[in-house]
């Protein structure tokens, strides 16, 4: 039985598949969040150095991971869309961008809120914080470009080009910011990692990371369905859907 890989690459069949997958993923998201927060707040011990403030790590680190991970996933879907000219892959890339930008903003926000008690300042020109900020600009650039182009096909391809150019630049930006940081301040101020991560802290963080991942899948699937509806409005299956819905 040859699996027909391309069966789900047509927007129509993907629409129904996504419809079925969303409930499953949302349940896992909620379950993982509950578990993650429980371990984070009730199981993990008080950190002797940062007392309770370190608990922000359970949302800060997953958000930062997700912001980077989602950009890479977005760029790969955009590349597939560009290479194989499959509209659906570019739709998924367009759907990922807002969630990625949200996680980048979240990482910056929670980082600042965590930095305030620890270092006394909201913002520190640390290499990672700065490259996270630049990542946010890359996301906004991608979304702005796609919003400015009316014709969806050109928007997808132009977005793909800027996403790929962005992906190539992420390591360069990161290292140049790291170099720049050491040049100016010297490596004095670095994100004070809580010394030895107690196992429960680590598990808490991983569960939260998984929860954020599931969450992004749910939101991206929902947004992709909306984009499919928007772009396929003229097709017959959408009008049938309208008849029933």
């Amino acid at each position: 039985m040859a699996i027909n890989w391309f069966k789900y690459s047509s927007p129509a069949s993907f629409y129904s598949l996504a419809g079925k997958m969303i409930p499953i993923f949302s349940i896992t998201t909620i379950a993982l969040f509950v578990m993650g927060l429980y371990t984070g707040f009730f199981v993990a011990p008080t950190d002797f150095q940062q007392s309770e403030a370190y608990r922000i790590i359970f949302i800060h680190v997953p958000a930062a991971w997700m912001s980077m991970f989602l950009y890479l996933v977005m760029a790969s879907w955009a590349a597939i869309g560009l290479a194989f000219n499959t509209r659906l892959s570019s739709m998924i890339a367009t759907a990922i961008a807002p969630t990625g930008a949200m996680f980048t903003f979240l990482a910056l926000w929670t980082g600042a809120l965590w930095g305030k008690p620890m270092w006394g300042t909201w913002w520190v020109w640390d290499a990672r914080l700065t490259s996270e900020l630049i990542l946010l600009f890359l996301y906004i650039g991608f979304m702005a470009l796609q919003a400015a182009i009316d014709d969806p096909r050109r928007a997808d391809k132009a977005g793909a080009v800027i996403a790929l150019v962005g992906v190539v630049n992420i390591p360069i930006i990161y290292f140049s910011v790291k170099w720049w940081n050491t040049l100016h301040q010297g490596a004095t101020v670095s994100l004070t990692q809580s010394p030895k991560m107690a196992t429960t802290m680590l598990t808490g963080m991983f569960i939260m990371a998984l929860a954020c991942w599931m969450y992004s899948i749910v939101v991206v699937l929902m947004r992709t369905r909306t984009i499919i509806l928007e772009r396929e409005r003229h097709t017959t299956w959408v009008s049938e859907l309208q008849g029933t819905a």
């Binding site: 630049i134 600009f137 890359l138 906004i140 650039g141 702005a144 470009l145 400015a148 182009i149 132009a158 080009v161 800027i162 150019v165 962005g166 630049n169 360069i172 930006i173 140049s176 910011v177 170099w179 720049w180």
Partner: peptide, 26 residues
Amino acid sequence: LTLGLRGGGVLVSLLVLPLYIPVLIF
């Protein structure tokens, strides 16, 4: 990328400035 787009000027800066940062730093 922004050829012939309305508001292209501002858009170019949004797209290109993040990519200029390494050159600026060094």
